[in-house]
Design a protein around this nucleic acid. Structure first.
Lengths: 341, 341
DNA sequence: TAATGCCGTGACAGCGCTGTCACAAAGCTG
DNA sequence: CAGCTTTGTGACAGCGCTGTCACGGCATTA
């Protein structure tokens, strides 16, 4: 910076002011400084300025993985947004519980970021409490954190409308398939199940726990077994609501293999609307992770600029039902069932 | 840090030495300092230390998007590796040409990282030259950069073995479908085409340019049209080699719609082995982006630690052919064709 | 016993910026 | 035209660390 100052014939103070875009610099000095900076290929050192300002210009982002469509989309919209605000994005990929423990042990983001964005982790209260002590805004994305700023999709409402759609088609026996993660069922999982149950209750249909089964989405064998449980019931379902599209796709594959036509003999409904859904022509409840990334990014920038302000703490995003080809009226005399007693 | 020093009854120098793990600290002092640091919830400020050491502890990573399976997998393996080496990962998502121009204009990574990892961009020579001036190691991932360190998959060899597989099955009319990106055909694209041609040449089959068509993978209509070109030939192909799995999946969908059985009437071969391939039971040439991320991460760490060392500049990763259900012998009296004159 | 070397520790400057204050010059006001 | 404000600029301390150097104490050697 001293070099630039010398070349432009001004003090380093003035160079600093110019490069930060402060207004109290006369136009010709500004021009001289900018030229000098360009000629010398100069860029301010973030390290040095953050040392004095106390702001790092970094947003730390915690994600469990980047392999999922969801994370990829969220970060793909978050990234450019932060860059436009002249912020860096420090990424922490925490793939398993061991890494997670070591992360919370060291908390490497501690003094090295202005805010933290935590994606989809379903943290324990203890973990959240540690993050509270970080001394920076922490935003929970795609999960609900009591009393802390968070951005998430309205899973319950989505599942509610999805289930209603199946009911409206005439289905009365509707199964729900859940997928547990490494630390049990996620918050989203619970909410979606809740929405499903609410829709059934609303329609006056008694809950039947044998219609709710679970299997890890990645484990095709387990999914097939879960399907088997449903097919072996005295009164099997005519529709299956899968908590995630991937699960739905696996179910469809298994159903086809068993020569059970989708949607003629069995309707399948997904949740997410990831690219796979289109390949499978899957009716699904869409959420938009890129929208979520954008909203979370905007919130984080607001919180950095005034952490005290009374921002909306919980931003809940809507879902949309996308009708495609895997749902239809149930087999049999559905017309008569449509106006139940 | 002063607080820790006071609490432990030592100087800040000693605290610094302890926390950096230098050996010249007596065991009991080390224990005292570590306890004090833990009790005060202290972590060193990277900004401050990088100011004096000149090393930022950051690896900047440039990616075009994170929505692709490829990027997600690469970063998912890179992330934990860098964290294990106590490095931060600064992510720059550059989705379009405008962002790209502005990135190269500002070069925000300039003094804020120790190394730069550039993924899949097919940079112009001018852009690469700018990066050379950055004063830090720059590693090109999944692309070939003349005279600069890079990590990429052996696309030509992969396409060669893929095409050979089709030839071995008895196919003689084999089409190749390419997908152009925003800046034309990628390096990989060219290499794969090259491998395809080489296999044909090797088998003594004359190249027929009408068998090489192109369509953007995302544009299903365009892919269908490209397929139409092939089907409208006087002597249509019996197999199609798609440059990417997504393209292959779109082709399969279009073929099914046209009631052309895969693989009975037409074999389809992909390239990538992304999750979609398994859903489509697609025979494909597999590459491993997570392996690539790992290798790139190791290389970057080596280059940071001694930039002058004579490291292997180009790391070429192998591909593997994954036989699945979308390739078969060509229709008709293939047995006779198998030993061509 | 004196000379020598090594080990563990502390003092202190300085990394590259920014914020504060001081100050000169120019523009107002009555 | 004196006295005020406003504007643009420079000097300088200090952010939180680390690297260097100096120094006291102990072990080793002649």
């Amino acid at each position: 910076m001293a070099d630039v100052a010398e070349r432009a014939g001004v003090s380093t103070s003035t160079v600093s002011r110019t490069l930060r875009g402060l207004s109290s610099v006369s136009p010709d000095v500004r021009a001289r400084v900018e030229r000098a900076a360009r000629e010398l290929n100069f860029a301010v050192s973030r390290q040095a300025s953050s040392l004095v300002t106390g702001r790092t210009g970094v947003v730390a982002v915690l994600v469990p993985t980047l392999k999922s469509w969801f994370m990829g989309s969220a970060l793909s919209s978050l990234g450019p947004l932060l860059r436009a605000a002249d912020m860096e994005l420090a990424l922490y990929v925490i793939p398993d519980l061991a890494e997670r423990a070591s992360f919370f042990e060291q908390l490497p983001a501690r003094r090295n970021a202005d805010a933290l964005l935590v994606h989809c982790f379903d943290l324990t209260e203890e973990e959240s409490a540690r993050l509270d002590d970080l001394g920076m805004p922490v935003i929970y994305v795609s999960q609900h954190a009591e009393g802390r700023p968070s951005v998430y999709v309205d899973d319950a409402a989505g599942a509610l409308s999805g289930t209603r759609h199946l009911l409206n088609l005439g289905h009365r026996r509707i199964a729900f398939v859940q997928s547990p993660g490494a630390t049990g069922f996620s918050f989203s999982s619970h909410e979606r199940l809740h929405g499903y149950r609410q829709a059934l209750a609303e329609a006056g249909i008694a809950l039947d726990d044998s219609l709710v089964v679970s299997a890890r989405a990645e484990d095709k064998r387990a999914v097939a077994e879960a399907l088997g449980q449903l097919l072996g019931l005295r009164e099997p379902p005519t529709a299956v609501f899968a908590e995630q599209d991937e699960l739905a796709a696996t179910l469809i594959t298994a159903l086809r293999k068993a020569r059970i036509e989708v949607p003629e003999a069995m309707s399948v409904l997904g949740f997410d609307d990831q690219p796979l859904a289109e390949w499978f022509d899957l009716t699904t409840v869409a959420q938009s992770p890129s929208e979520m990334g954008r909203v979370a990014g905007e919130l984080v920038l607001r919180l950095i600029n005034d952490p005290e302000a009374d921002h909306e703490r919980h931003i809940v995003l809507p879902t949309r039902l996308i009708p495609r080809g895997t749902t239809a009226r149930p087999p049999g005399p559905a017309t008569e069932d449509e106006n139940p007693s």
